[in-house]
Design a protein around this nucleic acid. Sequence first.
DNA 1: CGTATTTGACCTGCGC
DNA 2: GCGCAGGTCAAATACG
Length: 331
Amino acid sequence: MCCFWTMGTAPVCLDLMVGRPMDHEPSPVRCTGVRTEADVASSACDRAPPMTNDEAKILEAKLAQVSEENRKLTEMIAYLYGNQVSRQSPDGEGQQRARTAASPTPPAGKKRSQESMDASHSCDVEISNRNVGTGEAEHVDVDSPLSNGTCRRIKVKKVCTRIDPSDTSLVVKDGYQWRKYGQKVTRDNPSPRAYFRCAFAPSCPVKKKVQRSAEDSSVVEATYEGEHNHPHPTRAGELPSYAARSGGSVPCSISTNSSGPTITLDLTKNGGGVQVLDAGEAQPDMKKVCRAVASPEFQRALVEQMARELTGDQKFTDALAAAILRKLPDY
DNA sequence: CGTATTTGACCTGCGC
DNA sequence: GCGCAGGTCAAATACG
């Protein structure tokens, strides 16, 4: 099980190793969720000849030291990544919002002015970027408090989905009903950008912008603004991440909001996932996110979720049975 | 005929 | 003030 974060062009792979046999002695390395050379060495020790107690203690000490370094590196990666993404405001959302918020007296009689008023009450912008097709997940929180103290969090989430390049509909299936209200060709991208509103509830403030990636026409970027004020039409309680179904699975995504960090693992194209919520902190903290990922509770929940998903997928069980049969000598 | 989508026009904010 | 770019509106059109 790998959890990817992209940092520029260099993907970071955190091997959670959740599928490993449980009869192994639990080690601090596994608790961090990152496979290291020391961890590999410890596995090799299973086949090594017996050693003295002193040698074993030395190895244990080294292992603990490596584990601690590994944990610090993991936190550092998450911290650096958060800093990088926070500097990359997607599609100028932050700038646009700053412009809107700076408008002291919006013109009356326009729906647009009401939306500007709504945005002006926001001080926090959450930005999430998930590259669904490639299994990369990105996320960061951007806090920009206003001076007037009237803060309301507006969630901005960016989701990348891989679709058929011949598909020009710009439809990202996320489980919600969307009503298209506009389309525009932007300067930095030859592909048109489509504007959607949530059509499930008339009062739902959520908007969605969908545009093909300028670099890869098979990838569409969907930017969600706001949060739904109604339950999910089909599967209440899940995050709006169903784009994964149309293009591929997402190994992992991490989000943080006012209620604390949320780790979501979409294990299959058919949905499902593990959410570990840490609502104890009001301020988002990437270190806490890393610790949540590394916690035994998280990994146990992950294993259980994987087992449920795999055993519940008839196609998977059929394919597995067929593969086993092919390995039998008489098959 | 009702609903959803398309598309050109319009509005607003920003930079020069 | 003007031009540009992003976002939205609303009439026209398509579709079931």
